[in-house]
Write a protein that binds this DNA or RNA. Structure first.
Lengths: 338, 338
DNA sequence: TATAACTTTTGAAGCGCTTCATTTTCTGAA
DNA sequence: TTCAGAAAATGAAGCGCTTCAAAAGTTATA
């Protein structure tokens, strides 16, 4: 089923068929009808591969993510997909499984597909951007939640600022014995949030070493949060627990209620990410909302600019601000808001 | 950057470069080294579009899903992606947004991309399979959770059997005043589960009209479950609530605890889907687990068979069985299992 | 040294489409 | 009726690759 078949059935030249599809105004209305009929009769769908080969821009955008079974990553991927879709493109979903080699293989594959570009949530939380210098086939890339240096565009969310938001909220409620779940040897994002937390305490004239207990967690799921919180409770009950993400917060909630403590009366909890579940948890969870919709839109736009643009493209770095969403896990007076 | 550039740099013909890439054994080791050097020097990545044009099979599989912000759909999409990936292919993710026209446009787009095939979760819950008879470009498709009739392969999970599993479990615990959240005018899947529930009661010699209160819900989220359960409680407290999905079950849990009732002591709850969250809900949730991993694998395999196969392909229909996972929301004695 | 039997390399043809310089057809004015 | 100018249709060339028949090179045998 090729364009030529349509041409033969319609009794015209291939160029005419191509024109009725791509430049209808160039063909005589009478001919147009005939060709369109032929197209319909044969159920002809032009081969996009061949089109791209002749110079048309691809409408496929690669999305390389980690295979983390985490609601936040899912929601983010979802938001990215939506943003790409709204820009009139399609997503080719690739999973790096957190593996560097696989990530590289995927980027090569995307280059081979001659996609328009790729959105990349790097598998290497702490890699130097150098890794991405010599990409095969010079594929336009936008890095997500990771600084692209001089080499790539990026969209990130300010984690330090998010940590500060959480702490300032808790300080405002009068809490000064605070624990942070997601301490030292963990993810870069967690470390930045902890840094923001310490900064906020200092700014308030409080010594972080005295007022902030940093607890490390072994993972990022509910179980991990529960375990960490149980451990924490052995050495005393804090005023409030700030968690590196919402799942940890849910775990902390379970540990607290199991220990007979009430949230927020005995202990306030603040999560991070504001995943869908946060607002509907047993006690609606106060959280630091990540602007994932906005992140998706910026990322998609940067990529389109980059891939459409001249070679004289200046790499840009968009930094978004998180937002505090107060719910009853920290402040009983608050209505359950979305 | 084309194959010819490599050929020129290496001082050989294009055919030789192509051979070192695709049939290394056909070229002399000495030449091979030279060509491979040239490839590396130039960072050459063959254009997949051109390859496909010359007859190579595409390694892209379309995945058309609904844009439902539901953990279960996300997990399913995830499982499908994984299965496709394990089969050595890539997923092109498309979102029908539950819109028929958009679904059709997407299928046309996939046909235009000459993808290997498509996995399709139909946007029309109750559509006749006829809709999919005349697909543009005769794209091989596998329908998910929807019977494909004579026209397409399909993989489904037996919802009737799932409903029966839930009810038999509750009957075994001695509950006979049961409510089903997800009644009449709702999704096909819900209706089938309700049917299974009624069947199980009848098989036990109980009249469903007497022992099963069917409550309709306005959506499939936590809020909807909560509202429906609140309404239900106005006309009396049942022994147990069987919910059309886990989110509804979480909502029911909130309604019950708000009303001062305890789970499972006053009321037992059984959900459906067994999403990730079920095992870690405040009271771990008994649920009917959908075999999504297996569903993904079967779907991927059917599609590959279909797309590789001769035209004499017999459409197959795989029906998978759900599984009862007992946790403490229905049976306090049970340990919290995964 | 000539010949047969391989091994290796070559490069034109073709995949399905778009483009664009040409050719053909149509219009309307002279 | 003729002809210039506009409109429409044509079809070869080319996009980057693979394939394959033919050419060139190599080795073994007589």
């Amino acid at each position: 089923m090729r364009l030529r078949d349509v041409a033969e059935l319609a009794g015209v030249a291939t160029g005419t068929v191509s024109n009725t599809i791509n430049h209808p105004e160039r063909v005589h209305p009478r001919t147009r009808v005939v060709v369109e009929d032929a197209i319909r009769t044969l159920g002809f769908v032009p081969n996009q591969q061949a089109r791209v080969l002749t110079g048309a821009a691809s409408s496929v955008i690669g999305l390389v993510v980690l295979d983390v079974e985490s609601p936040f990553y899912m929601e983010t991927a979802h938001a990215l997909e939506r943003a790409v879709r709204e820009s009139g493109n399609v997503v080719m979903l690739c999973n790096s499984e957190g593996d560097l080699e696989r990530e590289e293989a995927l980027l090569t594959m995307l280059a081979a597909q001659r996609v328009r570009g790729a959105l990349l949530a790097p598998a290497t939380p702490d890699a130097h951007a150098d890794r991405y210098l010599n990409l095969p086939g010079n594929l336009p890339i936008v890095l997500l939640d990771f600084d692209g240096g001089d080499e790539h565009c990026s969209v990130t969310v300010d984690n330090v600022s998010g940590g500060a938001l959480a702490i300032n909220h808790l300080l405002g409620l009068g809490h000064t014995r605070i624990a942070f779940l997601g301490g030292s040897p963990n993810l870069r994002q967690f470390r930045q949030r902890a840094k923001g937390a310490r900064g906020a305490l200092q700014a308030a004239g409080l010594d972080p070493r005295e007022h902030l207990t940093e607890v490390s967690v072994s993972g990022i799921g509910i179980r991990d949060g529960q375990q960490a919180a149980e451990l924490l409770l052995e050495s005393g009950v804090p005023d409030a627990i700030f968690c590196g993400n919402d799942m940890l917060a849910f775990g902390a909630y379970r540990a607290l209620t199991s220990a007979g403590l009430s949230v927020p009366d005995d202990v306030a909890i603040v999560g991070y990410d504001d995943i869908e579940f946060a607002k509907d948890w047993v006690v609606p969870l106060t959280s630091i909302r990540q602007p994932i919709a906005s992140l998706g839109q910026h990322a998609a736009q940067l990529l389109l600019e980059h891939s459409a643009g001249d070679d004289a493209h200046e790499h840009r770095h968009v930094v978004l601000e998180p937002e505090l969403i107060v719910r009853s896990s920290s402040d009983r007076r608050r209505a359950t808001t979305a």
